[in-house]
Amino acid sequence: MTILAIDTSNYALGVALLEDNQILGEYITNLKKNHSVRIMPAIQTLMKDCERVPADLTKIVVAKGPGSYTGVRIGVTIAKTLAWTLQIPLVGISSLEILASGTGRYFEGYVSPLFDARRGQVYTALYQFQNGNLTTVEQDQLVMLADWAGKLTELSKPILFVGNDLPIHRAKIEELLGTKAIFASITEHNPRPSELALLGRDIQGEDIHSFVPNYIRLAEAEAKWLEAKGKISNG
């Protein structure tokens, strides 16, 4: 069993190879550079260094968002195409779940991974480790940081915040949650592709042709069109 994990959903670019019960290799950068230029060479280099060829792969696991629309599409397109053409299963994992999984494994409380979504908004969710397994308490969502932090004040256990965009929101979180808020170390803010591989390891493959990113949001033009049609009032 050799799993290739791919994450290009945010600034962090990650590739990992998991074989049976071992992480063979892992590559991460956190740069504002073009994923389209760097992701395939990163996959190629990692596989070469680990002495594996595409035909050795038995599964592809990809970060399916939320995140940058373009970024997540690059990873998903490559993952879909590889899985389809190599005739191996494809598994999509929430980009937030990868981040939560990389921290808080031995933490008694909740984990709130977040990505900035501009204008005071964040993509976030709430997770909790139970007997070593990550469980979802609140689904991935797009929410005003102030509303989210306000909601978390009702929880009795501390909340661990993680993500490279934390500096944007840290002051507000501290103001609203006080000592209930714990902040992860900078060494934990990059989503770990090895965690992505592990999260997808025991999950069954999805239908490859119909696999799409989880954008959370409709495209702006579509939201406006639906609103004009009076079908929904999209926030």
């Binding site: 395939m40 190629q44 595409p54 690059i74 397109t77 490559i78 879909k80 195409t81 590889l82």
Partner: peptide
């Protein structure tokens, strides 16, 4: 990116 994945 699909083309690159196929080529690889």
């Amino acid at each position: 990116n699909a083309a690159k994945a196929l080529a690889f």
